[in-house]
Design a protein around this nucleic acid. Structure first.
Lengths: 131, 131
DNA sequence: TTGCATCTACGAACCGCTTCGTATATACTC
DNA sequence: GAGTATATACGAAGCGGTTCGTAGATGCAA
């Protein structure tokens, strides 16, 4: 019955991305980072970010250190596990559960450079070693 | 500014999947297919499916033939284009826009068989020919 | 024609996600 | 202490997606 941490929503994913890159941060830090990256246009209000992060803490996506005046939040889920989760979800919804099918489509649906193709080959060799 | 057809929501994607597999269908057909696949548990009501398909027609995801009593709906978007669109959206949200990164993660986040790996290699050769 | 089955149409409610206004606490400075 | 800046907390509203109740149209059979 291992339900695990809930799947992050879009806004939550943006916040997680900031925390993954910055490490433990205050709401102010996250808010400013989001505003910077979106070029100030359509950026969220401070209390919006605060509320989202509080909800995320309730959900188990973040922890927070309340020792200082400004609470410091940290991601409880890793980037890898979240990416895997999202991929599996999309595979389930649109590829009949096949992550391989998803990977093939992702590879074929875009122009690729020789260098990128070589990277995929390397990855295949790594995977092959584990089979 | 090519906005194209809107991204399908979850419920819409389920309906599209039925239409992709069955071809042009009535609301009754789609509803029954959905009920069958979900084993009757948690299946949608008839009017719910109807409303969804009406909305989808308004959005440009479906067309409908109103000549008979029961309207016949058909998907206006292809499975391929929809899959590509969803992949690009996920890549944008969670992989910094890199569909290659998404593909690599999809490949590495699951056990793969030698046969599957070989399929990916073939795909890479095809892609390489186009570069 | 009457009654029944099946269809479309429409509006409202609900729910989760998101946003914001506002109240309140706390620290710092003059 | 008064004033200012910045923090958390909370409630409510907005919105899109989804669901359903119900009304009204249409076809068919007795």
């Amino acid at each position: 019955m291992t339900s695990g941490p809930p799947r992050p929503t879009n806004a939550e994913l943006e916040i997680l991305t900031v925390l993954w890159e910055r490490g433990p941060s205050t709401v102010r830090d996250v808010h400013d980072s989001l505003a910077a990256v979106s070029g100030d246009v359509a950026s969220r209000g401070y209390t919006t970010v605060l509320k989202l992060m509080q909800i995320m803490a309730d959900k188990g996506l973040l922890t927070r250190d309340e020792s200082g005046k400004a609470h410091v939040y940290e991601a409880l889920v890793t980037r890898e596990s979240t990416r895997t989760r999202l991929i599996e979800e999309l595979a389930e919804k649109a590829f009949g559960g096949s992550t391989l099918g998803l990977a093939l489509q992702a590879l074929s649906s875009r122009p690729a450079t020789r260098e990128e193709i070589e990277r995929v080959r390397e990855m295949l060799r790594d995977i092959e070693g584990e089979v």
